[in-house]
Computed example of a mutant assay.
Amino acid sequence: MESPDPSSSAPVLLNIGGKKYATTAETLTQREPGSMLAAMFSGRHTLPRHPTTGAVFVDRDGKHFRHILNWLRDGDIPVLSESEYQQLLREAEYYQLLGLADYITEKLSWKKGDGTLETELTRKDVIKCIQAQKTRFRGVNLSGLDLSKLDLSEVDFSYACIEKTNFSSANLHKAKFKLVEAACSSFEHANLHECELTGANLKEAVLDRANVQSANLQDACLTGCSFIETDLRSAHLQSANLMGADLNGANLEGANLKGAKLTGTNLQGANLQRAYLREVDLRETDLTGAKLGGANLLGTIR
Rank of each mutant, 00 (worst) to 15 (best):
V206A: 02
A175Y: 02
T265N: 10
L142R: 07
I130L: 05
A190V: 04
L197E: 00
Q96R: 11
Y94Q: 06
L257F: 03
S3A: 15
A183H: 00
A160F: 12
Q86G: 05
Y94R: 06
A275P: 00
Q268A: 05
H45D: 00
A220G: 01
A55R: 11
G249V: 07
V58D: 01
A205L: 02
A101K: 03
L282F: 11
V126G: 11
L277H: 04
M243I: 05
P11S: 12
E229R: 08
S9I: 06
S143M: 12
N191T: 02
H173V: 01
R138C: 13
D151S: 14
V12D: 08
L47K: 13
G293F: 03
A92S: 14
G259K: 07
N256Q: 04
S226A: 04
L237I: 06
A39I: 00
Q268G: 14
T263F: 08
Q133F: 05
G17H: 09
V56L: 02
K124A: 14
D146Q: 06
A160K: 11
D219L: 09
R283M: 14
G224P: 00
S234V: 01
L277P: 01
V56F: 04
H173C: 04
R136S: 13
D61N: 15
K258H: 02
N216F: 04
L262M: 15
G289Y: 09
I127R: 07
Y103G: 10
D219F: 08
D246T: 05
L232V: 03
N141C: 14
L80K: 06
D5Y: 12
L282Y: 07
A290V: 08
R209L: 06
L152C: 11
E229T: 02
T52E: 15
L150N: 05
S148C: 07
S7A: 15
S226Q: 11
A39T: 07
